[in-house]
Amino acid sequence: MIETRKLNVQPTLSRPDDFYNALVEMHRELSEEQSRLANAKLILLLANQIGDEETLEEALKIAAEGLNKPTVF
């Protein structure tokens, strides 16, 4: 596990279920392509809100932790 330096990974949402439901609702009736685009837009909006590149780089590493990346030949 990556040791965090700047990124707060502790729960801070006062109503996480409400956020999850809103996220699911945002995707309702979207095509797979539209859903991916909505996720990309959301990520970029939140990254802009955070604004700190070191924190964002840490978040990228944590998000990718444990995922199997395909081998590129």
Score class of each variant (00 low, 15 high):
2 I>C: 06
3 E>P: 01
3 E>H: 15
4 T>C: 13
5 R>T: 13
6 K>F: 11
6 K>V: 03
6 K>H: 11
7 L>F: 03
7 L>W: 03
8 N>V: 06
11 P>C: 05
12 T>L: 07
12 T>V: 09
12 T>W: 00
12 T>Q: 06
13 L>R: 15
14 S>K: 13
14 S>N: 09
15 R>H: 12
15 R>Q: 12
16 P>N: 10
16 P>S: 05
18 D>F: 09
19 F>P: 00
20 Y>C: 04
20 Y>F: 08
21 N>G: 01
21 N>L: 09
23 L>D: 06
24 V>S: 06
25 E>K: 15
25 E>F: 08
26 M>C: 11
28 R>N: 03
28 R>E: 04
28 R>K: 07
30 L>C: 09
30 L>S: 05
30 L>T: 06
33 E>G: 02
34 Q>W: 02
36 R>D: 09
37 L>K: 11
37 L>Q: 14
38 A>F: 06
38 A>R: 08
39 N>L: 15
40 A>T: 12
40 A>P: 01
41 K>L: 15
42 L>V: 07
43 I>S: 02
45 L>T: 09
45 L>F: 04
46 L>P: 01
46 L>N: 09
46 L>H: 07
47 A>C: 14
48 N>Q: 14
49 Q>E: 14
52 D>T: 05
52 D>K: 08
55 T>I: 09
56 L>Q: 02
57 E>L: 13
60 L>M: 14
60 L>I: 11
61 K>S: 03
61 K>E: 05
63 A>G: 04
64 A>S: 07
64 A>P: 00
65 E>R: 03
66 G>P: 01
66 G>N: 02
67 L>V: 07
67 L>F: 02
68 N>P: 01
68 N>R: 06
68 N>V: 05
70 P>H: 05
71 T>C: 02
72 V>L: 06
73 F>L: 11
